[in-house]
Every structure is written in structure tokens, then in C-alpha cells.
Write a protein that binds this DNA or RNA. Structure first.
Lengths: 259, 259
DNA sequence: CGGCCGCTTGACTAGTCTCAATCAGTGTGG
DNA sequence: CCACACTGATTGAGACTAGTCAAGCGGCCG
């Protein structure tokens, strides 16, 4: 298609199409299921007026009753649990486009907490609104599939922590984030913003921050990555993937054609 | 209630009520949501004619398209993944009453394998049958809730492997299995059959079998458990729970009253 | 400019793995 | 019925990975 044709196409974009290009939720869900225009508009609507939250803020705490869901529009958040001795395990990252707890209200109490790792833009969606969204079959299918991918990601993380070495764990995490962030337009070929600390990486991969630092050095010395000023540069993507033994199947990115 | 009254009550039990007492799927789902008689009958029907499968049989392998779901009626199975070097990570146990992949057909390919750890009785449920079951609101709600608990369990396992010591991981696993098996009538106050090897425990908790053996010895020497001939005896349940820092909230056993 | 948080590094310790040998339980075929 | 084979459990010795403690550095914010 010529540049001119491209330009013309852009002129006749609807408002929701124009906004959608930058809306991570839409980009993510459309990666799973094609959405009718009305659904796109509905999803854009719930993304309006997000709240800006600073880093280190609990969005909901373990033990509290779930109340609707969170939608991350910008920044990094995480699911985590604490042990009595203060040890923290991060069990999932919520990146732009991710929605926490679509089915949450089915349970009486949260069994974990959700916290921002960086400054975030967060939209809170009330249970009624979720219910309305789920009446749209395409949206319901996309959200369901998104939940299945979240669960598959959790399994991969368990494999990561249980059966990979410390540097491999970090490499695998970076490969995963690279794909997830690319799917929502927050990463390019060479890297992405990673607005979290080495302490956070440690609590994600089941290590100490000291050891994370050493592991990062190893990845750097192997010429695979560079991590400075909260920006991850991937110097050798095939090498990084091979080192981490990364296989993207669990993210189910390329199978829209499934039943 | 007197023995006599008990006896009379038993006389007027319907067939499905009689069978249900021993059916682990029914026991599990009724722990989440009360089920109408017709639903109970439908669930009993799909539990008929299970297939007997010997230990170490793959029920489905990574990469294959999901085809319906499995229902474990007896024995232990697991979800697992292999690394290229042969290392295995077990990511979930399927015990009697557990159903794999209610939503599986939404995805194009399995991202993990499922294998029996002991001899099992397994019912295979076709996608059409699943669809019919999901038309029953109470069954759908119970299965959905069961899926949420599976995911919460996965998170707890990640915490386990990431932030607990080797003996603590085993202790926590035993506490979890004790509750899950009691919910389906496969455990009593003092212990349960654990028909799996120390290699399996190692691949569950991210250790080697040698170290599992040493960790089990530590639990034994602390007077917490005894594990011989595939039977786990819990000698000190409060002590075991305290040692593992076990909190049962994530299993969501006691909150039928939730929205 | 000073304080704080996060990063980096070193030295030492603790936990876990690897390799290897032995023992016990189970099932099989002669 | 017993010898053998195989798998799983147990233990020891030594190596290695990751954790702990401690110090110094550097960038960012007030």
C-alpha cells in the first residue's frame, strides 16, 4: 500500500479507531479476538478518566473483598503476597492493557494484594460495568482468553522459579515482557522501559536483590542486554531467547483462529 | 441426630444422593455452590464409565489441541512442563474431583502436558457435554469458582517455591493436600494416601529428590509427619501448619456466601 | 547541598545440588 | 518359591549456587 493510500485511510478513521491505536486494552484484546466497532467504543469508554497513582501504592490488599476490577493503562503493577518475615513474592505483573480480576467478585476475599511498582494510570471498573461488558460476546471471549493466558503465564513463572538458574530467570522474564509490551505498543525491537527496581526483580524471580545484580551483570557480560536508568536494551534477542530457553507458546499470541 | 433417624434418612436418599457421597466431583462442587438435584444427576452421569489409566501416562501433551476435559475420579495426576535438559516442573496436582481445562478449547494448543502420577480413574468429557453442563447456572458458577481456586493455588505454589525453604515447601504442600483431599473424602484427620514418589515431590517443589529426602527427614525428626508406603501420617497438624506458615484462605473453602 | 534510595561489589556463610554407593520394596520369570 | 531386576529411598562427601552482611558509590529529590 502506498504512503498516499495510507494517508487516506487515516483520514476516514473514526474517533474510536484513532484512540484505539494508543489504548493498550484495545490492542491487547484485539490481539485475541476481532472486536466490532461498538465493543471498541465501549472499551474505550471505560478507559476514560483513569486515576494517576504513585509507585508503591496498594490498589487492593489481601483479605479485602474484591470490588470490581482494575485496568492498568500506564505503568507497572503487580500481584504479590507477603510472608510473616516480610519476604515478598510477586506473582504477576500487570502492564498496560492488563485487567485484574474480571471474576474477582465471585470470591469473598482477595487471597493476594495488588500494588503499583511505578507510577500508574489506573481505571477502576465497577462490577455492574463489568457485567455489561461481558454481555458483549466478543469482549467476553477476549477477556476469558486473557484470563487463560494469565494462568498459563503463572505456570511458566513457576517453571521459571522452580527449574531455571538465576540469570535464566531474568532472561526469561525479559523475553516475556518484551512480547507482552510489544503487543500493546510499549516496546520496540530493541527494548523497553522497565520502571521497576532490582528489588522488584528479586521478589519476582525468587532471589535476593544482590544476586539479581550479579545475574544482570552476567547477562550484560554475555552481551545479551543492557539495563540502565530503568530502560532495558536487548542487544541480542535470539541469544537472549536461547539463553532463557524461551518459547512464546504459553502467551497464545498467534492463535486467533482457535475455536 | 440418633442412629435411627440417620438410618431412616438414608432410606429416603435418592440414587444420586447415595452415589454423590462417594463422588469427588460432586463433593467438591457442592463445597462451592449448592446444586439442584438435576445438576447433581447430570454431574454423576458424566462420572460414569471412567477409564482406568496406569501411572505415568500422558493424558494430553504440550502442543496438542485441547479436546474436551479430563475429570479425575481416583488417583493423582499433574500438569507439568519439561525443559530441554529433561528437568520437569509440576505446576498442579489433579486429585479426585478435579477437572482439567474447562475452558481449554478456547486455546489452539496446550501449553503444558498432563500426566498421571499414580493409577487413575479418568472420565473424558467431550466439548459438547461441557457446553451442556455450563448451561446449568449453578454448575457453571461452581466450575468457574473452581477455576479461580486453581489459579489462586498456582499463585501460592509460586510463593512456595520462590520464598519458602525446602522443608517448608513440603510441609505447605502437605497442608494443602490435606484440606483438598478432606473436601472430597480422601483424607481423614490424621493423614491420607499420597501415591507419588519423592521424585514427583522434587519436581513439584523445585528441588532434587535427594534433597526432598533430607527435607522429609527433617519434618520427621521434628515430629510433624511420617511418610511410608505412600501413606502420609500427620503427627502434629497445628505444628505442621505453623512450620509451613500455612493459611488456607487461598483455597476459598469456606465462603459459599460470596456474591 | 544533603539525604535517601537504589545499585554495585567483596568476603563469608548457608542451602542445595551432584555424584556415588547402598539399601529396601515390588514384581517377574524360571 | 526363590533369584533377579528394577525402581525408589536413604545416606555421605564434596562442589557450587545463592544468601547474608557490610561497605562504598551514584543519581535524584527536596
Amino acid at each position: 500500500m502506498s504512503r498516499l493510500a495510507c494517508g487516506r485511510a487515516r483520514e476516514i478513521m473514526t474517533d474510536s479507531k484513532r484512540e484505539a491505536a494508543g489504548n493498550p486494552l484495545l490492542r491487547k484484546l484485539e490481539g485475541f479476538v476481532p472486536l466490532p466497532e461498538a465493543d471498541r467504543a465501549a472499551l474505550l469508554k471505560i478507559s476514560e478518566n483513569p486515576q494517576v497513582v504513585s509507585a508503591g501504592t496498594d490498589l487492593i490488599r489481601e483479605g479485602e473483598p474484591p470490588d470490581g476490577m482494575f485496568l492498568i493503562l500506564d505503568g507497572f503493577a503487580c500481584r504479590y503476597k507477603l510472608r510473616e518475615n516480610g519476604a515478598r513474592q510477586i506473582m504477576a505483573y500487570l502492564v498496560p492493557g492488563d485487567a485484574g480480576d474480571v471474576d474477582g467478585p465471585l470470591l469473598r476475599a482477595m487471597d493476594h494484594s495488588i500494588c503499583t511498582l511505578s507510577a500508574c494510570k489506573v481505571a477502576r471498573i465497577a462490577p455492574d460495568t463489568i457485567w455489561n461488558l461481558l454481555q458483549r460476546p466478543a469482549v467476553a471471549a477476549a477477556l476469558r482468553k486473557s484470563t487463560l493466558v494469565d494462568e498459563a503465564t503463572l505456570r511458566e513463572w513457576l517453571l521459571n522459579v522452580g527449574r531455571r538458574s538465576a540469570p535464566e530467570r531474568l532472561a526469561h522474564l525479559f523475553c516475556e515482557l518484551h512480547l507482552r509490551l510489544r503487543a500493546v505498543g510499549r516496546a520496540d525491537e530493541n527494548g523497553f522501559e522497565l520502571p521497576i527496581t532490582q528489588y522488584d526483580l528479586a521478589d519476582t524471580t525468587g532471589q535476593t536483590s544482590v544476586h539479581v545484580n550479579r545475574s544482570l551483570r552476567e547477562l550484560r557480560e554475555r552481551g545479551l542486554i543492557k539495563l540502565r536508568q530503568r530502560h532495558l536494551t536487548i542487544l541480542d534477542l535470539p541469544g537472549l531467547r536461547q539463553f532463557a530457553e524461551f518459547k512464546s507458546g504459553y502467551l497464545h499470541l498467534g492463535d486467533q483462529a482457535a475455536a
